[in-house]
Amino acid sequence: MAAPGRLKVIGSRLLQAIPVVIGVIIVTFILTRALPGDPAVYFAGTIADEESIQEVREALGLDKSMPEQFFYYVGDLLRGDLGTSLMTGLPVAEELGRRLPASLELTLVALIISCAVAIPLGILAATRPNSLADHACRVLVTAGVSLPTFFTGLVLIYVFYYVLGWAPPPLGRLDFIFLEPPRVTGFFLIDSVLAGDWETFWGAAKQLVLPAVTLALFTLAPIARMTRAAMLQSLSSDYIRTARAAGLNGRTILYGYAFHNAMLPVVTTLGMVFSFTLGANVLVEKVFAWPGIGSFAVDALVASDYAAVQGFVFVMAILFVALNLAIDILYTLIDPRIGFDAA
């Protein structure tokens, strides 16, 4: 009986995403135009004169009026063309297509590690407030969030690569002795499994561990804190008392009743953490020479590479919209009450 309501909610959320995407296109266009610095001057080189700058400008289409430029931009977008990066000379779409999976893989693995630690920790802390577990949780979480990622990253490299020698050199996604697995998803871990190449899988996994742990430490705090708070709240609610009075055992109460209800705020937090991690892992990417989109975007910004910056912002925005959509849908799956509010 809840299904049509839910489908309706999902449908309406999808529709709501359309104006957001249009807004994103307009804003990215204007924003990149508003950036200081003239790309024509930059790319003509230091010894260029007025004339050659003008030539570059015409070649880039920057001499046209703003509406005209916008018109071409949208037309290209519709064809899936994000323009050509001035830095690398490659199409931006191709560049992002290669780098986005790298960033996503890193972020996802980091979040999985983070959840695997933070959620049990939060539950433990909530079931025994002010116990040793609770204090330990607080210390770990505070340390994780207060140390900057580049610092934790460097410490991890120092200890595990330089001192202990357990980790491979922090140079990208795969050691040069391995070949990149045939590209299917762009996620090395998945692609190597699909190709049945376990050596490459382990190679990629080893490269991934340190940067992922670095990011995970940073994202531990919000997830653990929210789990603890949400669990405390649902554990003190009336239905838990009813469940206890009915003689249900501790495990059913804790996981079937309390945690199920506590999942809503945790999922919300997870979505937020995911989006800011994806945007903010530039430092980690730089430290580990990770060929992700964060470092690409920073380089493009410094070089006033319009097409690349535009493409990056656009792709990120679409990703955020998709992420929010996914979280909304996850919500409707967890909570039967959603879907009726909208009707």
Partner: peptide
């Protein structure tokens, strides 16, 4: 106690709507 609760002694509560798990 768990075996006694619900099996020997049961309880009903005020505000029945919040006394039930909202998402089950």
């Amino acid at each position: 106690m768990r075996d006694i609760r619900g099996r020997e002694i049961s309880m009903i509560f005020q505000n029945p709507r919040s006394a039930l798990n909202p998402i089950r």
